[in-house]
């Protein structure tokens, strides 16, 4: 008999990297910026976090370093899209390719080292998992109840109007991008420090892209992101259970499950948004468009 609580906790833990990254990207997209570099920021966080945790022996210092590392690399994207007004899709791709390369380059000496052990929090799960769960209401509150969140949403819905009201569009977006980078970094570090317990090249394995899909699935809400991340965590846990149970399906086919599930979910939610009355669902009005003030 499988204990349902322990399975649920496994699911919550499996969802944590995606939850962090998707919550960060949610804030970025609500500010009107589409950052496709989540995968690159996650891997940067996975490496910088692991390196700092290894150097200090303290995993929590590692997570702090991961936030800094993710935010630092995201500033390259901010520089390109907010200062140099480059195409967001291309810049995000560049960030992912560059991040993967940079992490592979600097991660070489860390290969084969084990991560320092972490003290578990309540219910035997990591404090970082709890932090991720706490971020959901916090971000909900920030977006829907705080003045700063209102400004951020205004910038994302209509940057021309926000600019006319005197809000610094590029500054708000730059800050959102850095926050998204920090969150993605922590998410990536959860994979290296708390899940795999070592550094391997390309270890985020598409988690950043899944996070991007989950933001679409969430209809740009914090609670939706949590639901999407848990759905993904459920598929992952189920897939691992089936592998462990020795089911007569090749491992390679089972491990496709998270990616296929992401596609299916994306299709379902896009269809709902497409055929609902409000075209484009709840996507921010200025999403993916650069802002240039003529006056």
């Amino acid at each position: 008999m499988i204990d349902p609580l322990s399975v649920f906790l496994l699911l919550v833990a499996a969802a944590t990297p995606i939850l962090f990254a998707a919550l960060g990207e949610l804030v970025v997209e609500r500010a009107g910026v589409l950052n496709l570099g989540v995968e690159g920021m996650m891997i940067a966080g996975a490496l910088s976090g692991f390196a700092a945790a290894h150097a200090t022996g303290n995993p929590f210092v590692g997570f702090l370093a991961a936030a800094v590392g993710g935010a630092a690399i995201s500033l390259l994207f901010a520089l390109l899209t907010q200062v140099l007004l480059a195409n967001q899709v291309a810049s995000g791709l560049a960030l992912t390719l560059f991040g993967l390369g940079l992490a592979a380059l600097f991660g070489k000496p860390l290969e084969g080292i084990k991560a320092p052990s972490m003290t578990a929090g309540p219910l035997g799960i990591s404090w970082i998992v709890w932090l991720g769960l706490a971020m959901v209401p916090l971000i909900w509150w920030f977006l829907n109840r705080s003045r700063a969140g209102l400004i951020l949403r205004g910038v994302g819905e209509n940057h021309d109007a926000a600019h006319a009201l005197g809000y610094p569009v590029h500054l708000v977006r730059g800050a959102a991008i850095a926050f998204g980078g920090a969150m993605a970094g922590v998410g990536g570090a959860f994979i290296s420090i708390a899940t795999v317990l070592q550094w391997t090249e390309g270890m985020t394995a598409g988690a950043g892209w899944i996070a991007l899909a989950i933001v679409v699935f969430s209809n740009w809400t914090a609670v939706g992101v949590l639901a999407g991340a848990w759905l993904f965590g459920g598929v992952t846990v189920l897939q691992l259970r089936l592998q462990a149970a020795g089911i007569k399906v090749p491992v390679q086919l089972l491990s496709m499950a998270p990616y296929l599930a992401t596609i299916i979910v994306l299709v379902l939610i896009s269809a709902r948004q497409k055929f609902s009355r409000r075209a484009g669902g709840a996507a921010p009005g200025s999403l993916g468009q650069n802002f240039h003030a003529l006056r």
Partner: peptide
């Protein structure tokens, strides 16, 4: 058919 982002679907694939 469904308006799914070709960026994300092609990448997942």
């Amino acid at each position: 058919w469904f308006g799914a982002s070709e960026i994300l679907v092609s990448l997942m694939l």
